[in-house]
Amino acid sequence: MRLRTENASFAYPGKTDEEKRYLFRDVNIDLEGGGIMAILGPNGSGKTTFLRCLMGMRKWTSGKSYFDDKDTNTLSSKEFWNKVSYVPQQRMATSSFTAFESVLLGRSGQIGFLSTPKKSDIEAAEKIMEELGIIAYKNRDCNTLSGGEFQMVLIAKALVSDPELLILDEPESGLDFRNQLVVLNTMDSLKNKGISCIFNTHYPKHALQKADCSLILGGKQAYFGKTSEIVNEKTIEDVFGVKAVINEMKVNGEVIKNIVPLYISS
């Protein structure tokens, strides 16, 4: 799996170049198999739009993206979605399918148009729910699940199709302390299996702790690179207008980074 963008830009329409309001400009990312990438940026900086363009739900204003070195515009939606899965920004369930029925919907790419789930599909759904530790509420209605439980159902639904890349839109937002960790650890274990993850986040700390590389939108320029190199006090101040300190602590011989905001600087 390799995902690249080349000078990817998105602007709200305008007649002249000056009238166009650019959300982001000339973004170049390069993500290769088995890595975790975080996208940071203030509200309205275009994090979700970037993801939606990446997935072909919106068009780049200019620039291109390549999946496995093929221009994503030339890929059929089936080719793309056979290898990529999407976990939308968490919302309340709008239908009362059971958790299991919801997860099974993730197999639609493997099931013929006029067909229904086969034994192998049902087993795949049970297996992934088991792995994610949510098999206990298999038969519960989705709209009776808590936010954390429902998020894990959405992740299971995305993973049941055996993707190479998982794209998550603010997966840990609105979750409690423990459930945030459950979601982040899930991404870690996917990485160990060679599945790449891209996630939007409001927490620079989560990028520092989990992401191999990061993209920061909303500043004078877009920053992309190794998280350890680009998520630092300077870029945070440039993008968020917040003076923050990043510190390190050693726990059981492991270095853990943390970030603490001090004051609003601009």
Binding site: K78, W81, Y86, P88, E101, I111, S115
Partner: peptide
Amino acid sequence: WRMNLLSLSEDELIASG
């Protein structure tokens, strides 16, 4: 069975392929 997909959001529908 496929009709169940129609309960999903537009983005999820696209992502279903």
